[in-house]
Design a protein around this nucleic acid. Structure first.
Length: 573
DNA sequence: GCCGTTTTCGGCCCGACTGTTTTCAGTCG
């Protein structure tokens, strides 16, 4: 089950959207949005909290606390149900289309009766929007483009969503009597950035109890197919999950087979054929007499083919089979190698956890160093000032103690020309500066490239944050000549971020690979806005693995002294 | 609806961009 806080946050978000669509007080809608973010980022579980405890959460007052309690007691909230009855779910769903907000969605519904993305697409192609106030030809064109963008994402979910489902199922099935082994495989084990469906693999002598337990899990909405070897279900959130049960003797071969990727497996099976062997999900066999060679562990299967065991994150047919053959697979960076985080926020800007809470949570995770990098002043909505920044620095210096070194930094805004928020004098006061693009996403490729190159050339910019600025499923990456940007980063000693946030994962793995060829170093950061986001680090590390990175490549895996030397080297550019 | 060493009422994250309008509404970060 999802975290109770996330369930509540989803409900509050929906209520905020419905308020906005029905044209209620905009500030009221925003209040619910804020409360949703705050609840999602709250460290303690809200289920079972009383009104007093709930109201201690910032942004939650008497009314929202009451609704949360009502939700846990009755399973629903009357106020939400009332608005749900007024507005078809499809109207809200239409606002996933970029450029279509609540006001326009409501106009489309009221004037034309449109209540789905498909209905909107049809209406546009039939020209039915013409004449509708506020919907000119350019708007229609932009909406069509937005629909394409939204559609490209359908059917895939963010990696954290899939992981939560998979870990819950593995946990539940592992407890079933007779279950000998259970784990997730497929694209989730390879840690692809989004997941189409979840593959669960289990080993048992008798698959029936596992299949029954699986089909009866609380998160299962529908059983799609049910058999002895395989059962497929759809979860209440619409995610397809396949369970395959194999004999323990086939475990290794099955795990290898169901982890994929398809292209990787094709390459591995070619190796088998050349050795007079045949590889299937049941094992590695001799072609001549059909006798079983090995099948119990993945390591054995790879070894018998003359290959080193290939980490799942590398299994994409990007040269890993050859590397496994001649023993040149990299020693991949792991979660345990990470020593620090250089991009995090607090309540001083848009975080929902205080400085003290963030530091305590980071310490609890055993980080050796941690940079607080709240937004800089040129992002107007953050209302940052020089005085606030300096006051935060004083506070950090006063709080700093113990085994974790706290660095004071900021997340600068790269303006359209490549400049940043402050002058050299003020910038020199920071221990570390991340610089990110937060506006003017649609510049030409040449302008965007120059913008990034100039930012790299700034002696006070140590890290470029979430370089492509994409938001998976919502906003495409900006267009730049990445090789030119990477060359500038390499030349100037500017690290590029691997942002671990599940809807960013930015740089993506293919661009990390390209950047590495230019000698670029990387910072795996969480961009945490709450203590619970610190756990996203695993997803950033996985993207780094997929790009073959080792600890040498990642500055946040370095000891503090080496990191400091890297940061100090920058102003001499 | 929330919140307060400016306020228990009256603000609230502010500004830019876009397409549409002929003075501005909606969307976005």
């Amino acid at each position: 089950m999802p975290r109770a806080n996330d369930t509540v946050a989803t409900l509050l978000e929906e209520y905020a959207d419905l308020l906005a669509i029905t044209g209620g007080d905009a500030f009221r809608a925003r209040t619910y949005e804020k409360a949703a973010r705050s609840v999602a980022g709250h460290h303690a579980d809200v289920s079972g909290m009383d009104a007093k405890a709930l109201q201690a959460i910032p942004g939650v007052g008497a009314s929202i606390a009451e609704k949360i309690i009502e939700f846990f007691q009755t399973g629903s909230v009357a106020a939400v149900e009332k608005l749900r009855a007024k507005i078809p779910a499809g109207v809200r769903a239409m606002t996933v289309v970029p450029g279509l907000g609540p006001r326009k969605a409501m106009i489309l519904y009221e004037q034309l009766g449109i209540e789905s993305v498909a209905g909107l697409e049809e209406a546009i192609s039939e020209g039915r929007l013409a004449g509708l106030r506020g919907f000119g030809p350019k708007t229609a064109e932009n909406l069509l483009h937005g629909i394409q963008l939204a559609r490209a994402q359908t059917g895939r979910v963010q990696i954290d969503t899939a992981m939560a489902v998979a870990e819950e199922i593995v946990g539940a099935l592992s407890a079933v009597p007779g279950c000998l082994r259970c784990t997730y495989a497929g694209s989730l084990r390879r840690m692809r950035e989004t997941i189409g469906d979840v593959d669960i693999l289990a080993a048992a002598d008798d698959p029936k109890p596992l299949m029954t337990a699986f089909a009866n899990l609380p998160l299962v909405a529908e059983v799609i197919v049910r058999g002895d070897k395989k059962t497929s279900v759809r979860t209440t959130a619409g995610l397809q999950v396949d369970l395959r049960v194999v004999p323990l003797a086939s475990w290794g071969a099955a795990l290898q087979y169901f982890t994929g990727s398809k292209q990787h497996n094709v390459r591995v099976r070619e190796m088998a054929v050349r050795k007079g062997l045949k590889l299937s999900e049941y094992g590695l066999y001799k072609v001549e007499d059909g006798s079983l060679v090995v099948s119990e562990t993945e390591e054995e299967v790879y070894a018998r083919l003359g290959l080193a065991w290939v980490p799942p994150t590398l299994r994409e047919d990007r040269g890993e089979v050859d590397a496994a053959l001649d023993g040149t697979l990299p020693k991949l960076i792991t979660l345990e190698d990470i020593r620090g985080d250089l991009h995090t926020h607090t309540t001083l800007t848009d975080g929902v956890s205080t400085l003290e809470e963030m530091l305590a949570a980071a310490r609890a995770r055993g980080l050796k160093y941690y940079a607080v990098t709240d937004h800089a002043k040129n992002l107007p909505m953050q209302r940052m000032t020089d005085a606030k920044m300096l006051a935060q620095r004083e506070k950090i210096r006063a709080l700093a103690s113990g085994k974790m070194t706290v660095l004071h930094g900021t997340e600068l805004n790269i303006d359209p020309d490549g400049g940043v928020d402050w002058d050299a004098d003020f910038l020199s006061g920071f221990d570390v500066c991340v610089a990110s693009v937060h506006s003017h996403f649609t510049q030409s490729q040449a302008e965007m490239t120059r913008r990034f190159v100039r930012a790299c050339e700034n002696p006070y910019v140590h890290i470029i944050g979430h370089p492509t600025t994409r938001q998976i499923g919502r906003r495409p990456p900006v267009e730049a000549d990445w090789d030119e940007v990477f060359a500038a980063a390499g030349r100037t000693g500017t690290a590029l971020e691997i942002n671990s946030y599940p809807d960013r994962l930015d740089l993506p793995d293919d661009l990390i690979l390209r950047a590495k060829r230019h000698g670029v170093k990387f910072a795996i950061n969480t961009d945490s806005h709450s203590t619970v986001h610190l756990g996203h680090l695993r997803f950033g590390v996985a993207q780094a693995q997929r790009a073959w990175l080792t600890t040498d490549d990642v500055i946040t895996a370095w000891p503090l002294s080496k990191l400091r030397a890297f940061l100090r080297a920058k102003p001499r550019v």
